[in-house]
Every structure is written in C-alpha cells, then in structure tokens.
C-alpha cells in the first residue's frame, strides 16, 4: 500500500513539469486574455483594469447606431468565415499533396525513408519571412512561374495568382506541409501491407484498395494532420499579409491590428476568444466523431 502511493507520487512528479508548464504558460495567459476581453479599452492602448463590459463581444456582431441601438454588422463575421475558408482550402491542398507524398515515403525501402523524412522537414529550417518572400518571387507577375510558362509558350500573359486567396493557401500549404505529411506517414508506416494484398486478392484495383483499405486505416494520421494544419492556418497572419498583399483581411491580421495599430486590446482579446471557441468546437466534433468511427458500419 505504501509502495503504491510512493509509486503514485513518483508518477505525479514525472508529470509535474508539464502540468506546471501548461498551467503557467497556457492557462494563465488564456485567463488573462479572457479577462481583458471583458474590460474597457484604455485610452492609449491597454485596458482599464477592474472595469467590466461585454462591449468587445457586441462589437464583433453589431455596431452602435447614433442613438446607441445595436445594428447587425457582418463585417467581422465575414472575416471570420473567410479565415475558416482559407484554412479549409489550405488543409485540402496539404492533404492533396501530403497523402500521396506520405504514401510514397511509406512504400520506400527502410533506408531511404529517414532521408525522405529529413527532406520533408527542410522548409522548417528557413525563416518564415524568407520562405514567404521566395513564394512572392515565384508567384508574382513575370515571376519565375510566369517566365517558365510563357517561355514554354503555354501562356501569353502573367497568370496573376499573387495576392489572391489561392496564393495565400499555397504559401500556407507549403509552410504546414510537414504537419500533414508526418502524421499520415506515421500511420501508413504502421499499416499492414498484407491487408492491401488481401484487397487486391478480393478484386479491388489500386484505387479501390486505397479508398477502402489504406485511407480508412490511415484515418487517425489524416485527421491529426488536418487538425495540425487547420488550426494554425486559422490564426496565421504573416503569410496572408505578405502573399495576400493585405487585400483580404484574415482573423489573424485583425487580431494583430487590434493589439497593434488599433490599440483595442479588449476587442482583440474577444476575437481571440471567439477563435479559440471555434477551434475547441472543431476539436470536440472530431473527438465525438472519432470515438464512434472505428468499426462503425
């Protein structure tokens, strides 16, 4: 009995550092943000400590008319949904490229796989800004891609893809690709390829074996990859700024500007809380689906 509790204490000690980390560096800041989101804005930035108001949340959905009545204002909601759309598009792009990549890697001989994992992580080594500027050079009018296409005679004018939602998605997809490839690779690497053989044996061609056996069994990795890409994309602000040319405001840019130029911390905090709530809802949906999914049918 004594040994048991000693064991338990030792285990508690093992986990103590991470609990301390999460408590100190996650829960406390989030708590501060939550508190700020209910305060009045200070005149020169910051907040009036101790005040209480729900105004920042009202500001998200409404604007005040001259007579102080609330009018529905969808500007911020639009930004919100545009960001969700961008994150979804980026996730779809990374999935479309990442799944075949991970499949290819998993099918390579053992020796070559480590090299490929290493290659996948190379983009991480370069500064985010440098990578984004590199994409600007590639995508801009008469940039490298245009020059190649026009040089080959495939197009007579620039494709004009820079500073669009698509160029933001491409830049984000590039940045977050490893987050998609590595979890999928991890689940494919564990896959029993004899199951694919069994599928072939029972009359499934390659496409159907992929769809009916490989993808369902790689689903934990695919789902993890999607979450790991979708969530940071939702709050991204550097890439939308640079590759979007600041034309389309994303939620990340909006939050950043509220803490910066607009000096409206409470509103920025309220937006962050809304974003956090959206992410948590998505996660809960995933967990709820996932607990039922395996073995359903």
């Amino acid at each position: 009995m004594a040994r048991q509790s000693g064991e338990g204490r030792r285990r508690a000690l093992l986990i103590a550092p991470s609990i301390l980390m999460i408590g100190l560096f996650m829960l406390v800041p989030v708590g501060i943000m939550a508190a700020i989101s209910f305060m009045e804005r200070g005149s020169g930035g910051g907040v009036n400590w101790g005040s209480f108001t729900t105004e920042p949340y009202l500001q998200f959905l409404f604007e005040r008319d001259l007579d102080d009545s609330l009018l529905l204002n969808t500007d911020y909601l639009q930004i919100f949904f545009r960001s969700i759309w961008l994150a979804a598009l980026t996730t779809a792009l990374t999935l479309a490229v990442g799944l075949p990549t991970a499949l290819f890697m998993a099918l390579q001989p053992e020796r070559r796989r480590n090299l490929l994992i290493f290659l996948v992580t190379i983009p991480f080594w370069t500064n985010l800004l440098v990578r984004n500027y590199a994409w600007i050079l590639l995508l801009r009018n008469n940039g490298l891609i245009d020059q190649v296409l026009m040089g080959l005679g495939l197009r007579s004018e620039p494709i004009g893809v820079l500073y669009t939602t698509f160029s933001i998605a491409v830049g984000l997809a590039y940045t977050f690709m490893p987050f998609m490839v590595l979890p999928i690779y991890a689940s494919l690497e564990k896959l029993d390829w004899r199951l694919v053989e069994a599928a072939y044996d029972l009359g499934a061609d390659r496409w159907r074996a992929l769809r009916r056996v490989v993808v369902p069994l790689a689903m934990p990795g695919i789902a993890a990859g999607c979450i790991l890409v979708f969530i940071p994309c939702l709050g991204a602000f550097v890439t939308p700024e640079l590759l979007g040319g600041g034309k389309a405001l994303m939620i990340g840019n909006l939050i950043q500007s509220q803490f910066g130029a607009a000096r409206n911390w409470p509103f920025g905090a309220a937006l962050s809380m809304a974003l956090l709530a959206a992410v948590l809802l998505a996660m809960m949906f995933y967990l709820w689906r996932y607990r039922r999914a395996p073995g359903a049918v």
Partner: peptide, 20 residues
Amino acid sequence: PPFRRPVNTVFQSYALFPHL
C-alpha cells in the same frame, strides 16, 4: 494483376480488415 484473377487467398495471418 491479382484483382483480375478468379483466385482468392486465405492468408496465414488472415489479413482481415480491422476497420470493417
């Protein structure tokens, strides 16, 4: 290819689809 042969296999490891 195996999916065009009217031949089926019972595998040593059974190779049952775990998700079905």
